[in-house]
């Protein structure tokens, strides 16, 4: 369980990191918090020739809310995201990530670039219709959540690109719910719900290769309060809309049932009233 050998480059700037990645060809890998990458190395599931450590690049740990959008630097740690009050949905989701000793190192951009479909922050980025700022050899570009996540652990980022910042629009109302077998585990199913004006966006994690944006049609347009009836209909629509696979952690039917329950809870949170039932039926 020791990492295979690699060269190590401590990047001093974004440009320096991109240069190092480019010099490594397709053999380079960004090291941010390392909470997913180092286990992958220890298990020898990957053998990058060069690790480009971005942790000491200055100016990438800022958090600022401007015009209804939280602008977060790539190196914002999960603990800092959980502590901020400018984007409560992101704060709540960050509290569900692993444990304090994981949250102290893990980074926002690292979680997004890793693109685990059961992870919390990719679901939040998509629920908020957020975007990432990306730097690469040919300059910078902006990728929306819909474009960033391509498949399980696959993003649209090139080997020579690096996320430098994250834009998270702040919803008018929000809810988050997750079911995991043990405290701190990846979700079996998680749901992030965000309301922007009359539109409710529901994103389900753990049921597809990417965080799944529920297509609930006209049901997702809400005028005024979100009623109990609407919550029930939307939860049923979410369960209908997902097509989960069966694996060791749960059958497709179980995940579908969890999708309905977690959507009920997330929307009850969003609607501002908690339902008495807190355990899956």
């Amino acid at each position: 369980m020791k990492c295979p050998p690699f060269d190590y480059h401590r990047a001093t700037s974004v440009a320096d990191a991109v240069d190092a990645l480019q010099a490594a060809g397709d053999e380079g890998k960004i090291l941010a918090g390392g909470q997913s990458l180092v286990p992958v190395l220890a298990l020898r599931l990957a053998r990058p020739a060069v690790l480009v450590d971005v942790n000491r690049i200055p100016g990438l740990a800022g958090l600022e809310r401007r015009d209804g959008v939280l602008h977060a630097g790539a190196l914002v740690r999960h603990l800092a995201l959980a502590d901020q009050r400018q984007h409560p949905l992101a704060a709540e989701a960050a509290r569900w990530i692993g444990h304090t000793a994981i949250r102290s190192r893990g980074t926002l951009a690292g979680s997004l670039a890793h693109a685990d479909p059961a992870a919390e922050l990719p679901a939040v980025l998509r629920a908020c219709d957020g975007a990432v700022q990306v730097a690469g050899p040919s300059g910078t570009r902006r990728l929306r959540a819909d474009e960033l996540f391509v498949g399980a652990l696959q993003s649209a980022l090139a080997d020579t690109e690096m996320i430098t910042g994250v834009e998270l629009p702040v919803p008018d109302a929000w809810g988050f719910a997750e079911f995991a077998r043990r405290h701190g585990d990846f979700a079996v199913v998680s749901v992030a719900a965000a309301r922007f004006g009359e539109r409710v966006r529901i994103v389900v994690g753990g049921v597809a290769g990417v965080p799944h944006l529920v297509d609930a049609g006209d049901l997702a347009t809400v005028d005024g309060d979100v009623s109990d009836d609407r919550v029930t209909l939307l939860a049923a629509a979410a369960a209908d809309d997902v097509d989960p696979a069966s694996d060791l952690h749960g059958s497709a039917g179980y995940r579908r049932a969890l999708t309905e329950q977690m959507t009920l809870r997330a929307l009850a949170d969003l609607a501002g009233h908690l339902r008495p039932v807190r355990e899956p039926a």
Partner: peptide, 13 residues
């Protein structure tokens, strides 16, 4: 001052 998994952090870091 912050708790860290010492198996997930490289010594060079």
């Amino acid at each position: 001052g912050e708790p860290v998994r010492a198996c997930l952090m490289l010594a060079v870091q």
